[in-house]
Amino acid sequence: MATTGQERIIQPRVSDIRKILDKQSNGASSLLAVLEDIQHQYRFLPRDALIMVSERIPVPLSRVYSVATFYNAFSLKPRGRHCFQVCTGTACHVRGATLVINRLETLLGIETGETSDDLEYTLETVNCLGACALGPIVVTEQGYDGMMTISKVDKLMRRVHSLGSENADAGKPAQVDAAATDTAPPA
C-alpha cells in the first residue's frame, strides 16, 4: 500500500516514542502496551513509529505489523479528532444500533470504519461495552450516550460539532433536520 496523503500529515516525534518505550520495560511482552500508548497519542499507529518500536524493543517488524493488524483497538490509518463508536453488542443490536449507525453515516457523510478526509470525524463500531441496559450506546470523547434514538444522535452530533474543529469549514457535518428531533422511537 502506498503512503496516503493522510499518513504524511502526522510524523511521530522520536522523543515521544522513546518516552513511551521507556515507560515499558518488559521487552517483547510490552508490545501491546506500547502500541496502545502510541495509538492513544496519535489516534493511529504511524508507520515510522512501528519501525522505531521494532528496533528498540527489539522484535521483528513483521511481528509488530501482525499485532498491529490483529487487534481491533489499533488502526494503521489516521483517525479523526472526534471519534464516534457505536456499540454493536447483542442488546444494542436488538434495540436498533443499526439505525444509529445509519444516521451517523448520513450525518458524517462517511461509512462505518472510515475517517473524513479532513481528519475531523471517524465512525466505527465497537464490541459490547457491557452497558447493555442502556443500548443503543454511542461513545465519544465526552463519554457514553445511552438509549440513543435518531433525535438523540442529532443532538449529540451538534454537541460534538460545537466543540470546534481544527479546520472549521471543512469539518462541518451534513445538515441536521430539525424537524426530526424530539421524536420517540416506536415502542
Binding site: 500500500m1 508507520r47 512501528l50 513483521s62 511481528r63 509488530v64 505489523y65 501482525s66 493488524t69 490483529f70
Partner: peptide, 20 residues
C-alpha cells in the same frame, strides 16, 4: 528472519511483509 507474517485476522487474514 521473519520478513513476512500473517496480517489481519479471520477471513481477512493474509500473508504479507510489513505494511505490504
Amino acid at each position: 528472519i521473519g520478513a513476512i507474517s500473517m496480517a489481519n485476522r479471520g477471513s481477512d487474514r493474509v500473508v504479507a511483509p510489513p505494511f505490504s
